[in-house]
Simulated assay, not measured.
Amino acid sequence: MDIAYWIVAALLALFYLYAGGKKVVQGKEELRPMMGWVDRVPMPLVRTIGVLEVLGAVGLLLPPLTGIAPVLAIAAAVGLALVQVGGVVVHLSRGEVGQIWLNAVLLVTAAVTAWLATTWT
């Protein structure tokens, strides 16, 4: 189970470091082609979401690696799942039903990561 956790957590962390990092450093014009919802959400909230995603990615990796409060990996995975619930809500409110597939995949992956983390905490 440890190997499965590290594979899934590393892939999830890479995704969130990339996506969250983009939200933190790029402006609305650069984000719009990939994330049309940024027109409807204030930029401070977009930046906050980006910071939460980056912190979640770090939380998936650092606590288990250091052995300091490894239960935080579960909290990080649950937090990332909640971010995706919010993403589904935003897409559905915009009528973008076809856009929620990525949110659904990330939600399930975060839930699996949380479950895998419970096997060693």
Score class of each variant (00 low, 15 high):
Leu102Pro: 08
Gln99Ala: 15
Ala110Thr: 07
Gln99Phe: 11
Ser93Leu: 10
Gly98Leu: 02
Val83Leu: 12
Val105Lys: 09
Val97Asn: 11
Leu82Phe: 14
Ala77Glu: 04
Ile100Lys: 10
Val108Phe: 03
Val85Cys: 02
Val85Ala: 05
Val105Asn: 04
Val97His: 11
Ile100Asp: 09
Leu92Val: 05
Arg94Ile: 13
Asn103Trp: 06
Leu107Glu: 05
Gly86Phe: 08
Leu102Lys: 13
Ala73Asn: 03
Leu107Tyr: 08
Gly79Leu: 06
Leu82Lys: 01
Ser93Ile: 04
Ala111Gly: 08
Val108Met: 03
Ala73Ser: 11
Asn103Val: 07
Ala81His: 05
Leu107His: 02
Val83Glu: 12
Leu82Gln: 07
Ala77Met: 03
Ala111Lys: 07
Leu82Asp: 01
Asn103Ile: 09
Glu96Ile: 00
Val112Glu: 04
Gly95Tyr: 01
Leu107Asn: 02
Val105Gly: 08
Gln84Ser: 11
Val112His: 02
Leu80Met: 13
Ser93Tyr: 02
Gly87Met: 04
Ala77Val: 07
Leu107Ala: 08
Glu96Gln: 14
Asn103Gln: 11
Gln84Cys: 14
Ile100Arg: 00
Val88Trp: 05
Ile74Pro: 09
Asn103Thr: 03
Val105Tyr: 11
Val78Thr: 07
Leu80Ser: 05
Ile100Trp: 04
His91Thr: 06
Gly86Met: 06
His91Cys: 09
Gly87Thr: 05
Val97Gln: 10
Trp101Lys: 11
Ile74His: 09
Glu96Ala: 13
His91Asp: 10
Val88Pro: 03
Ala81Leu: 12
Val78Leu: 12
Ala104His: 08
Leu106His: 12
His91Phe: 06
Gly95Asp: 01
Leu80Cys: 09
Ser93Phe: 05
Gly95Thr: 01
Gly98Glu: 00
Gln99Thr: 15
Leu92Ser: 02
Val78Asp: 06
Glu96Leu: 14
Val112Ile: 15
Val112Ser: 02
Val97Glu: 07
Gly95Cys: 07
Val89Met: 13
Gly87Asn: 08
Gly98Pro: 00
Val78His: 06
Val78Asn: 04
Leu102Tyr: 14
Val108Ser: 03
Ser93Trp: 00
Val108His: 00
Gln84Tyr: 06
Val89Lys: 03
